[in-house]
Amino acid sequence: MGESGFFERAHDVVRQVPAGRVASYGQVARLMGAPRCARQVGYAMHASPGAAGGVPCHRVVFADGSLAPGFAFGGPGEQRRMLEAEGVGFLPDGRVDMARFAWEA
């Protein structure tokens, strides 16, 4: 499968993450059947059309709840703003509260 096919599969999984929930890069990779490809999922999110294009990539975070420092659509501050607008809560250290807001796919 080529890169575009992988990216489209990643986008399809992320479209399923409901508002108010987050998924990790690794979780998306596992759901795609590519459990060792979390980094490639990151590339797919960076290349996505974003929420405006129907791919809510702001809902994908690191497994520990950290936000992507290179969030393509305005930086981690914008990613946090978008998540908070959906009701996602954060820990005092700035990470998403994964115990409460991780998507149970």
Results as ranks from 00 to 15, higher is better:
91 L>V: 13
90 F>A: 11
62 F>I: 08
55 V>C: 00
46 H>W: 11
42 G>C: 02
88 V>R: 11
105 A>C: 08
32 M>V: 09
28 V>H: 01
18 P>G: 01
2 G>W: 03
101 F>S: 12
87 G>F: 04
70 G>V: 07
50 G>M: 11
94 G>Q: 09
33 G>V: 13
80 R>H: 11
48 S>K: 00
20 G>C: 00
32 M>T: 09
35 P>T: 11
7 F>R: 15
44 A>D: 02
30 R>D: 15
104 E>W: 07
86 E>D: 01
83 L>F: 10
76 P>N: 07
42 G>V: 03
51 A>G: 15
53 G>A: 12
45 M>G: 12
48 S>N: 12
21 R>I: 13
104 E>C: 11
45 M>K: 04
52 A>P: 07
104 E>L: 13
15 R>V: 08
8 E>A: 15
40 Q>D: 15
1 M>Q: 05
49 P>G: 13
12 D>G: 14
77 G>R: 01
65 G>V: 00
51 A>Y: 12
50 G>T: 11
16 Q>N: 04
78 E>Y: 03
100 R>E: 10
74 G>D: 08
3 E>K: 04
71 F>N: 06
98 M>R: 09
77 G>L: 04
22 V>W: 01
66 S>T: 09
47 A>G: 06
90 F>N: 12
20 G>L: 01
27 Q>M: 03
36 R>L: 11
59 R>E: 02
51 A>T: 13
16 Q>R: 01
90 F>K: 05
56 P>T: 11
